[in-house]
Amino acid sequence: MTWLNSLSYGSGGWGDELLHGLGVTLGLAIATFPFAIVLSFLIHWAKVSRYTPVRLFGRAYTTVFKSLPEILTLLILYYQSQAIVSWVVETVAPGSHLSISPFVAGMMALAFVISAYGSEVVRAALNAVGKGQFEAAASLGLSPFNAFFKVILPQVWRHAIPGFGNLWVILLKDTSLVSVITLFELTHVATLAINTTRQPFLFFGLIAVIYVLLVTLSTRAQKQIEKRVSRGFIREENGDV
């Protein structure tokens, strides 16, 4: 059982590093998701805006972020934002230095990519709620702001949960890409561990199992939430009204 030693918790093994990596992976996904959801709504509104340039921007945004490989988006955002920040710092305060953390770059890239898909989830969910709710809210004298937050949004979640649940799983798995820009998350920790232990199958196998468990747990949780939010509703799709 010598291979178990390399997983031990402490200075001799990689157990504590792996746990830390798992924390970063989860932290990145959890930090990114709310941004991605808000961006999804904004991009959806851009796509249905009455101003043509805004509409074009919304369409370009989805086309670009859905067409580019996530890893390329990540690299471009990482290097480009670094270049911009360095330039700004150099102009404002010559001599000083500021660098973009891989965590922030990863958050940006993942939020952009997920929201490109998320805007379509939002569209479908808003369609499912229906225009009538908005009109009814307006006829009761609610401001568009109140109509959205008090009438539409509470109803949107029920329809958006399957779509956003899928995106959460995609996000969780895509955090592994941020290892490429050396963020200390699960996949990167495994790569580091392999450099010293020479046990690639053990470590990659282990993190593969961890990812599968995370995804399975997420799907379970999603099913529970779905069940909870649709209590009191008849499931139309089965036809058993």
Partner: peptide, 16 residues
């Protein structure tokens, strides 16, 4: 459930 990158690492480096 397995991220594709991890699957590639597992097959390519893991087989080593």
């Amino acid at each position: 459930g397995v991220p594709l990158l991890v699957l590639m690492f597992l097959i390519y480096y893991g087989s080593g």
